[in-house]
């Protein structure tokens, strides 16, 4: 805190300044990004989550470059992968090989394919690597859609109350009443089976979570004096909602969003397993699981690797989410 004992300080304000410094009611600054980051840094499990997400994001970015960005400049898809290792879609090896250190009925593992090969002889390591991109982007984009729409709907409903609240929240609850997977699948059947609609569908289906969460916070924030002070100052409703209400209601939403990314990854993997979402030959974890289910007994490793990838990524988001919750929840103050 800035010291307030300048020489020009007159006596009456000096007593104010001392009151600040000795006020036991006020702990050190516990708002703002710096505080949140410092709290997360002291939490080893949250750091582990952050590490997992960091690695996964890096992998996803490389995959994105290789699959989408470089082809725009006339370079062949999977050029990086081929230069370093091999294309995830290349069929080069015997099928259903186990990892390098084991054997199964189809043959002996080789270090040319450390995690083994799939039912078409494609390298599993390369496919898991490239599947990360879809998992991360789907989780983030679907959650962003839900977050933005849910926050707007929930805060408008909570701030205005009355009939607007009734209409918006009943609409949101209608969404909530339909089983999640059914909703997304119906949406995809209606609009298209590919990944774009999987993301939008999951995003829409998640709107109620965020709308209800932020509305419950807005209901208490809108009664705060500074909201009335803003109204008395002539601030328009739109600015009150976006500049005063939402920033003060956002902490639990941020935590929920982090956890929700993990959930969205799981759901999209589930959709891919059912044949909705990423279409072959695009590598995605859910689709790998789907292909592997016929070979689970002779070659369990085929299912284990993509399953493990999903598990680790989702755990990463959950650990970070829990860490953020501890950091942002004012009731837990250690």
């Amino acid at each position: 805190m800035a010291t307030t004992t300048g020489s020009d300080t007159d006596s009456r304000t000096e007593s104010d300044a001392q009151a600040v410094e000795s006020d036991p009611e006020q702990p050190a600054a516990n708002v703002g990004w710096r505080y949140t980051v410092s709290q997360v840094r002291r939490d080893p499990t949250a750091l582990a989550g952050l590490g997992i997400i960091g690695v996964a994001t890096l992998v996803a970015v490389i995959a994105f470059l290789d699959q989408t960005v470089l082809p725009m400049f006339g370079i062949e898809q999977y050029a990086i992968a081929q230069a370093v290792w091999m294309s995830p879609n290349a069929e080069v090896a015997p099928q259903l090989l186990p990892p390098a250190w084991t054997t199964n009925v189809f043959g002996e593992g080789t270090w040319a394919h450390p995690l083994g090969t799939d039912d078409r002889g494609r390298d599993i390591l390369a496919r898991v690597f490239y599947g990360t991109r879809i998992a991360i982007s789907v989780g983030v984009i679907a959650t962003t859609i839900a977050l933005v729409a849910g926050t707007v709907v929930g805060s408008v409903a909570g701030y205005y109350g009355g009939r607007i609240d009734d209409v918006l929240m009943r609409a949101v609850e209608t969404l909530y009443a339909i089983p999640f997977l059914v909703l997304v699948i119906v949406f995809m059947v209606a609009f298209g089976r590919d990944l774009t609609f999987a993301m939008i569908g999951v995003g829409i289906a998640n709107i109620p979570t965020f709308a209800r969460l932020i509305r419950s916070r807005v209901l208490s924030v809108r009664e705060e004096d500074y909201i009335e002070a803003a109204r008395a100052a002539g601030v328009r409703d739109r600015n009150i909602i976006f500049r005063h209400v939402i920033p003060n209601s956002f902490a639990p939403v941020l935590v929920q969003a982090t956890l929700q990314i993990g959930v969205a990854i799981l759901i999209v993997a589930g959709l891919s397993f059912l044949g909705f979402g990423a279409q072959p030959p695009t590598p995605s974890w859910g689709q790998m699981l789907s292909q592997s289910r016929d070979y689970m007994l002779p070659d369990p490793w085929f299912s284990i690797w993509p399953g493990l990838a999903i598990l680790i990524t989702v755990v990463g988001f959950n650990l970070l989410g829990d860490g953020l919750r501890d950091a942002l929840d004012p009731r837990i103050n250690n």
């Binding site: 805190m1 800035a2 104010d16 009151a19 600054a29």
Partner: peptide, 10 residues
């Protein structure tokens, strides 16, 4: 400064 860094009088 943030509001919590001020005393009531300030």
């Amino acid at each position: 400064d943030y509001p919590h860094e001020f005393s009531g009088g300030m």
